[in-house]
């Protein structure tokens, strides 16, 4: 019984598809040709990115990568070393470049990995910011009953107003640089690299509760710094 029904459906389907094919051929529109053309156009439009000659890399991207690294590492020597490591790693990875992203974006992708590696290795040399340091810093924002010393003033960090404003990002980096090293690294991994908490704890070799205190302190301090150094000044103008 089921076989018969199946057979029936199959015949109906075959019959219909033949009718369609004949109809298309009659109008001179072969489905195959249409498909080929529509597939060919976008693939030719999408230019594959190619890499330039590596001996030009430093002139083309050296400064940009350096600034990018400096935003995350803060230390000029470390940033320079990371740029060097990035270019050397890129040399060996160059055959695997798929051409999907631009050359600069590809190099930045390598650099970001190098930065995380650096954080992982650097935890021994990092000055110890222990929990009590961060807790003490948090305490300074509040009075003895837990009321903030400074109530937030009314502003919003809106992307459409601030994203293209280079002056704002300068102020932002100035504020970010006031954080202690480990707290800064945790904040960069969380808010710029968007890593999960667990991954950050592994990378920086810290406990989860320590990470939460660090991030909380970073947010408190950064918010207040931006408020006084940017938002209140700009509103006063």
């Amino acid at each position: 019984m089921t076989n018969e029904i199946f057979e029936l459906y199959r015949n109906v389907w075959l019959y219909n598809s033949q009718i369609f094919r004949r109809a298309f051929e009659k109008f001179g529109l072969s489905l195959k040709i249409m498909d080929k053309e529509s597939r060919m156009v976008p693939s030719e439009d999408k230019k594959k990115n190619t890499l330039s000659s590596p001996d030009k890399w430093v002139d083309l991207y050296g400064n940009y990568l350096y600034r990018f690294a400096l935003g995350r590492l803060r230390n000029p020597n470390e940033a320079e070393n990371i740029v060097q490591e990035t270019f050397l790693a890129a040399l060996t990875a160059r055959e695997r470049f798929a051409g999907k992203s631009s050359e600069r974006t590809w190099l930045i992708g390598i650099l970001k990995h190098k930065v995380i590696d650096h954080f992982r290795k650097n935890y021994r040399e990092r000055p110890v910011t222990d929990l009590t340091d961060n807790e003490k810093a948090i305490d300074t924002f509040y009075d003895h009953v837990g009321h903030p010393n400074r109530s937030p003033s009314d502003w919003m960090p809106e992307s459409k107003k601030l994203l293209d404003n280079k002056e704002f990002w300068e102020a932002f980096h100035k504020c970010l640089n006031k954080l202690p090293q480990a707290t800064h690294q945790a904040f960069v991994l969380r808010e710029l690299e968007s890593l999960e908490g667990k991954k950050i704890c592994e990378t920086l070799n810290i406990s989860q509760s320590n990470l939460w205190v660090m991030l909380h302190r970073a947010r408190l301090q950064l918010r207040e710094c931006l408020e006084t150094s940017w938002f209140e000044k700009k509103q006063a103008l």
């Binding site: 600034r67 935003g71 960090p157 601030l162 994203l163 280079k166």
Partner: peptide, 24 residues
Amino acid sequence: LRALLHDYNNKIEQEDFLPGPPLL
């Protein structure tokens, strides 16, 4: 602020945006 930083990070990865002066 989190949303803004997310956009900023995408921007500096995709575009030629980071202002000078620090140079290599």
